[in-house]
Design a protein around this nucleic acid. Structure first.
Lengths: 95, 95
DNA sequence: CCCTAGTATTCCTTGACAGGCATATGAGCG
DNA sequence: CGCTCATATGCCTGTCAAGGAATACTAGGG
């Protein structure tokens, strides 16, 4: 999902502002079908949702599923913060 | 990288304890070459390191590169915490 | 030194996308 | 209703990576 650089670019862009498909096509310099296909993947992953405005589809970021990533990351984050804490204690002792 | 479920399983396992390749093979129920190849990928990504003990290679988790993931996630995390904060303020106002 | 255990590497096959092109769908407008 | 713009879908091809089998490497043990 997030393995695809194009998809991350789309998310990064939607994080800043909602966009129509055309906007994304311009921004990414890719064919429209390719963009639409990535959007479909993101939609099915629940990472984006879209509303219809006239003949355009305005896409919007949905951060929900990213919390799962955050949760997965959590135990690892704990590891490196623990290490930092240990280092800190170590340095404190040295003073 | 983390797109591969097998790789995540390896990381999750190494998070709990260092392991030899054989241990991982048993734990994952996969062929030894497959495991070694995943370990190579993880090694080149800096996510694991290994030390030689007798004729075994003991692999160890290296959390460094995961901070990059955490950094990438950060602006998104900000988004949902902001939303939560906004909701909280909203509820506070309702009381 | 040969032999064995543990691990890495190579070769091969197979399956999964990504991306382009052509085309279908669908909403507004004359 | 036919037309056009914006988007979605199907089809096709090329690329890449995962996994297995066979093989090469390397460190200890007789």
């Amino acid at each position: 999902m997030l393995a695809e650089p194009t998809r991350r670019r789309i998310l990064d862009r939607l994080r800043r502002a909602e966009s129509s498909v055309g906007d994304l096509v311009d921004a990414l310099g890719m064919s429209q079908p390719a963009v639409s296909k990535h959007l479909k993947v993101l939609r099915e992953a629940g990472l984006v949702s879209c509303r219809t405005a006239a003949q355009q589809r305005i896409y919007r970021l949905d951060t929900g599923p990213l919390r799962a990533v955050d949760d997965w990351l959590d135990p690892y984050r704990r590891m490196w913060t623990d290490h930092l804490d240990a280092l800190e204690r170590h340095l404190d002792r040295e003073e």
